[in-house]
Every structure is written in structure tokens, then in C-alpha cells.
Design a protein around this nucleic acid. Structure first.
Lengths: 73, 73
DNA sequence: TATAAATGACACTTATAGTCCGTTGACTTA
DNA sequence: TAAGTCAACGGACTATAAGTGTCATTTATA
């Protein structure tokens, strides 16, 4: 599985834990809603700055974001 | 400190631990030599795919890459 | 069972990520 | 004196991510 897909899945997972919509997350991170959709579905090779925005909006440290079985597959 | 600078410092730190040159790391990761210089100096907003290449070349899991005091500042 | 809310798919422009070739200066070894 | 390695930087170029619009589809709920 590509890193893009893994990152997307992890974002979706964390977003669902918080219980907010893609649009709410997008607004919080100040990113376009459809861009978030694309990222969650593994269609975007996201940059570190945009990933930081999303990780911050998900209120999780980077190290915890990557501390998931997802990233050992 | 920006995420770009933090990532760059962490890459440089890990590269020095291994004891290889920027060019050797670049070759191992199959990315451009000059690009590695820029990333280490915080001048590039690297994509997740290229970060993965570098992290793999540094032979460290993502979660350990981000498990550094750097990323809590 | 219709309506709205949420998500998905994708094309498109523009901004910039990333490559390639070369140079420079610091340091090292012969 | 070279001659080599390495990091940093520049300019020109190509590839692709960022950002947005639009419509289609799915899912919740009245």
C-alpha cells in the first residue's frame, strides 16, 4: 500500500474518532474540502506543510499520527 | 520553527548518525543531490512520497523519525 | 421517499516541487 | 602544489502538488 493511501486512511480514521465531517476538518485546517476528500482517498501526494495543517486540526502530535499499524504494512 | 526546518534538521541528524554524505543519501533514496541539501536546510516543502524515500534510506520507521524533541517545539 | 448533508470523482489553472548542470569554498590527504 | 570530498548555492528547466469548480453519488433523517 502506498504512503498516500496510508496517510489518507489514518486521517480518515482520526477524523471519524473526533466525529467531524471532511468539511469541518477542512475548515479547521484551512484547506479546501475536496482536497481533503482526495487526500483521504489516497489521490494526493501531500506536502509536509499541508499534512501539518491536517495533523494540527486533528489535534494529534506527528509521532502519534505515524504511530499506527498502518505505517508498518 | 517551521515544519520544513524541523524535518530538515532531523534528516541531517540521522544522516550524520549513519555517517554518510548528502550525495550518498540522495543516491540511496533516488532523489536529487541538490534537493537533499535544500531539504536539510529547511528550504523545501517536501512531499510525503519523497519524505518516505528519505526515511527509508535512513532506515528508520516514520514514527521514530517524528519521535524527536524537534517536533514538540 | 423525498430532502438535505456528506462524500466522491475529476478536470483545470497556477504555483511550486523536484531535476539537472555547474560553481564555489572549506577541509583533507598526498 | 595539487587533487579529492563534501556542503551550499544558482539558474534554467520539467514535473507535479496546490487549490478550486462542478456535478455525481452516497448516506442520514424528516
Amino acid at each position: 500500500m502506498s504512503i498516500k493511501v496510508k496517510v489518507g486512511q489514518r486521517i480518515k480514521e482520526l477524523r471519524n474518532e473526533i466525529g467531524i465531517s471532511q468539511e469541518a476538518l477542512a475548515n479547521k485546517a484551512e484547506i479546501d474540502r475536496t482536497y481533503v476528500t482526495d487526500v483521504e482517498n489516497g489521490r494526493r501526494n501531500i506536502s509536509i506543510e499541508n499534512l501539518e495543517k491536517l495533523v494540527n486540526a486533528l489535534e494529534i502530535p506527528f509521532k502519534d499520527f505515524f504511530n499506527s499499524p498502518n505505517f508498518n504494512k
